[in-house]
């Protein structure tokens, strides 16, 4: 029974590793630290997989570890946002034409972390309200109002 949750966990990590990386990256904004967070999250999860309850969603459980590890990282390190070499190369290679949307991206960056997190989890990771609630250890209604506030704030910033 126990190993079932571990198998589930491992297949989830392998399947969604890019999602988890992107989520970590959205907090720390550089690939080296994001990789460290992914690694640390996986190690934590493997060590603690016994604590997954039978009826608990492994997905929400692991997302929660990634979010918390990212937040811990931000707390430990000063929140400086800079672009690392990899990313710079990527953007300057012209693979991507996001430059005209820098303002849009910035308005998201400017949101307080807790509001940004709900937007990312709900709209970018396509999670359900109750999953976001599970990940952030809040109730559904809190997440709903937070999401609504986040959208309002975003709207204001873009005007």
């Amino acid at each position: 029974m126990r190993n079932k949750s571990k198998d589930k966990l491992i297949s989830l990590i392998l399947e969604k590793k890019e999602d988890f990386y992107r989520l970590a990256y959205s907090y720390v904004k550089n690939s080296e630290d994001a990789l460290d967070i992914v690694q640390e999250s996986i190690e934590k999860a493997i060590k603690a997989h016994h604590s997954i309850q039978d009826n608990q969603s492994v997905k929400s459980w692991f997302y929660r570890i990634v979010v918390n590890t990212s937040l811990d990282f931000l707390r430990k390190h000063k929140r400086t946002s800079f672009v690392d070499e990899n990313t710079l190369d990527y953007y300057s290679s012209g693979k991507n034409d996001t430059y005209q949307n820098i303002d849009l991206e910035r308005s998201l960056e400017e949101l307080p972390v807790k509001y940004r997190t709900v937007i990312i989890l709900k709209y970018f990771e396509d999670l359900k309200i109750h999953e976001v609630a599970e990940i952030l250890n809040e109730n559904n209604n809190t997440i709903k109002t937070r999401l609504y506030r986040a959208l309002e704030m975003l709207k204001e910033k873009m005007e």
Binding site: I10, I13, L14, K17, E18, Y21, R22, Y25, S26, S31, L35, V38, Q39, E40, I42, E43, I46, N86, T87, Y90, N96, T98
Partner: peptide
């Protein structure tokens, strides 16, 4: 579009 570094695979495997 967040670029995925090629090291992600090895990092994940190492961690697992």
């Amino acid at each position: 579009n967040t670029p995925i570094p090629k090291e992600l695979d090895s990092t994940v495997h190492k961690a697992l």
